[in-house]
Amino acid sequence: MFPETLPEIADSDLEQFFQIMLTQYGYDFRGYAPASLKRRLGTVLKRYGLADMRTLNQRLLTQPDYCERFINEITVSTTELFRDPSAWIALKTQALPLFLSMPQLRIWHAGASTGEEVLSMAILLTEMGLYDRAQLIATDIDKRSLNQAQKATYPLRNRALYEQNLKTVFPLSSLDKYAREEEGQLVFRQELLRNVLYLQHNLVSEGVFGLFEIVLCRNVLIYFTPELQDRVVMKLVDSLVPGGVLMIGTKESLFWCSAAKRLVAINESERLYRRRQ
């Protein structure tokens, strides 16, 4: 009736959806905050012209190929180069200097999405002369986003914002150093990605897979229930070397998480923490 209409989603259909995703594909959506999950499911139903949740469940059950596309639709990929520039300034001035004398710098981007955050880090490391020592691991639940991240190609309309954000963090730098326009797209230099490894990884169901000096997980926790967030934050902290740095989204909060006592704030308002020694 109205263009804004989103289909109603019954709890019983949602339960069935959880079961299908878990048993057929190993994706556990039970810990996702219901308000936004229902919203996004509604958006997917509308986009594909599916009448209701049952039809979606049916499709997921019978068409395994559909799942990959669905995961891409249901996960949120809002990100940008140097999103929240003040947080990147804090990382540059308060966190990276802690590692200047380290022979290696292992960095994990948990929920790397379409790759803008990894590129931001690669630029930050390049500007600070730390890139060659760094190994970046970019993971996401969504394979399609990771493929896009590896292409490091973005709509040209983002250019002005990216340039502005970059210049906020590095006033003397310029996007031209790192990206060029090609066929109406903004293409970042592949050289920036030479130390980046892209892996599909499910933060909810898979365990810790390495130790890192820096872990970034921004605007991922907001999609989880408090219980799931608590579990995931524990994994993130377990992935840090003592003294390692954790960066989360600037509106995310972990003071109530059980892992919080293992962290000290470097910059609370920018959500930059350090694992206790």
Binding site: E4, L6, A35, S36, R40, T43, V76, T78, N219
Partner: peptide
């Protein structure tokens, strides 16, 4: 957004009516 359990949550989903925050999203929640 408002969650059933009594807390507020935030999301960075696509803007609605070019708006983020969106009033529709909040009211629906």
């Amino acid at each position: 957004l408002v969650e059933k359990e009594g807390y507020l949550s935030l999301a960075v989903d696509e803007p609605v009516h070019f708006s983020r925050p969106s009033i529709d999203v909040l009211l629906q929640s």
